[in-house]
Structure formats: C-alpha cells, structure tokens
C-alpha cells in the first residue's frame, strides 16, 4: 500500500512539474518533449488506478501519434514564436483577469464545502473485480454506449469530409498518381523489357541502338 502511495506521489509530482514545463519552456521542441513526459506520468497514474487499458491507450495514441505529430508540426512549420510572445504580453491582463475569476470560482467551491462533494449519490466501483478492464470497457462501449460510440464515429466522419472539402483541390495537371487498376493490369510483357547488356562494354546503350558490340559514345565524342 505504501508503495502505491509512494508511486502515486512520484507520478503526480512529475506530472504537474512537467505540465508546468510545457508552458514555461522557451523552446517549443522542449515543450513537446515535456508534454510526452506528462502523458507517460498520467499513464502511470492510470495503472495505479487499475485502468491498464486507458494507460496503454494513452501511451500508444497520445505519445505514439499525437505528440509525434506535434513534434513534426513544430519542426516543419516556421512559427515565429517571438511574435506570438508579443501578442501574449499584450493580452496578458485580460487573460489574467479571466483566469483569476475562474481560479477564484474553483477556490470558492472547495472553501465552501471542503473536499466533500456531498450531493452525489454513491458511485459504483469502476470495474467489477472479476472482469478484466479491457473486457469491461468493450462490453460497455458496444451496449450502453453504442449510441454515443456511433455518434463519435459520425463526428470523425464530418471531420474527414471537412478537411477534404476545405483543402482538396481536385486533380491538378502534372501530378503523378497511383492507379491501382493500371498496376494490377500489368503483365511481364508490358512491365519488363529484356535488354541485352553488352559484355565488356562500359556504357549503357541507347534505347534504339542495340548492336551486339558496344558503340561507345565516348569514342564518338572523341
């Protein structure tokens, strides 16, 4: 038990510290790397909670895909961070005001009633002890949450359509495209040509000229 608690504090402190570094870090690449560290620590917390599926998902999806994508964007795009910073300072008072109000609200929530939320009825245990985490999630997603699951699917479909509608410009001339049908329809006759390579020669013969012996260009040039 104490070991669990010790690990909880280890992960939690690292998580908060690296999350703070994401914002503080001057170099955007460092910020993204700290973000990855944050994800790893959050995954650790999930494992302590017994939610191993979510932990793996976090590592695979967020670290493996999203964070790497961030890294790509940060490195590929030429974002002028000095200019962004200038805007930041200009708008800082408004941000501080709004942030301060939200913080005050949160503080008021807990000062008013301590950490006991009071109203809520007792929540059931997240997962029955004898069902594996992943299995329990699967059972819920495809029964109780099937409707919401399909709804999320539709949202992703809209996102795909939207990205294509707003950016795809149709077929441009001069772009080489893959044609699966043409590839499948190829046969050795159209795909390959057998060329006789002159033995002992030292140049590649031109396409039409295929005499048995080399007719070296080098000589012609000389």
């Amino acid at each position: 038990m104490t070991l669990t608690v010790a690990f909880f504090y280890l992960f939690a402190v690292l998580l908060v510290a690296s999350a703070a570094m994401v914002i503080i870090a001057k170099n955007p690449v460092h910020a993204v790397l700290f973000l990855i560290l944050t994800f790893f620590n959050a995954a650790g917390l999930f494992i302590l909670l017994g939610a191993e599926f979510l932990a793996m998902l976090l590592v695979i999806v967020y670290v493996g895909a999203v964070a790497v994508l961030f890294l790509f964007v940060v490195m590929m795009l030429d974002v002028d961070f000095a200019e962004l910073k200038a805007g930041f300072i200009k708008n800082a008072p408004v941000g501080l005001l709004v942030g301060g109000i939200v913080l005050a609200e949160l503080v008021a929530l807990f000062v008013g009633r301590g950490l006991d939320v009071g109203l809520g009825h007792k929540l059931a245990a997240a997962v029955p002890a004898d069902v594996a985490n992943t299995k329990a999630l699967g059972q819920l997603i495809y029964t109780k949450y099937a409707y919401l699951f399909q709804g999320s699917g539709l949202i992703l479909l809209v996102a795909m359509i939207g990205a294509i509608v707003l950016t795809h410009r149709g077929a441009r001339p001069g772009v080489k495209r893959q044609s699966v049908a043409a590839q499948v329809a190829r046969n050795p006759k159209t795909a390959m040509s057998v060329e006789k390579v002159p033995s002992g020669g030292y140049t590649i013969p031109e396409k039409k000229a295929a005499p048995a012996l080399a007719q070296p260009k080098a000589e012609a040039a000389e």
């Binding site: 009071g118 109203l119 007792k122």
Partner: peptide
C-alpha cells in the same frame, strides 16, 4: 462531479434534494 451522474433524470433528482439550491458547485 457534484451530482455523480451524466443522466438528466438522475441530475434532476439530485438537483431537487435538500441543499442543492445552495450548492455552489452545481
């Protein structure tokens, strides 16, 4: 967080219980 449910029916029950009307969180 303050009602323990995302379902509007359950939220309605909790929101009518005593103390709900002065619960700042809700």
């Amino acid at each position: 967080g303050f009602t323990g449910s995302t379902s509007l029916a359950v939220i309605a029950q909790v929101a009518q219980s005593s103390g709900a009307a002065t619960n700042i969180g809700l």
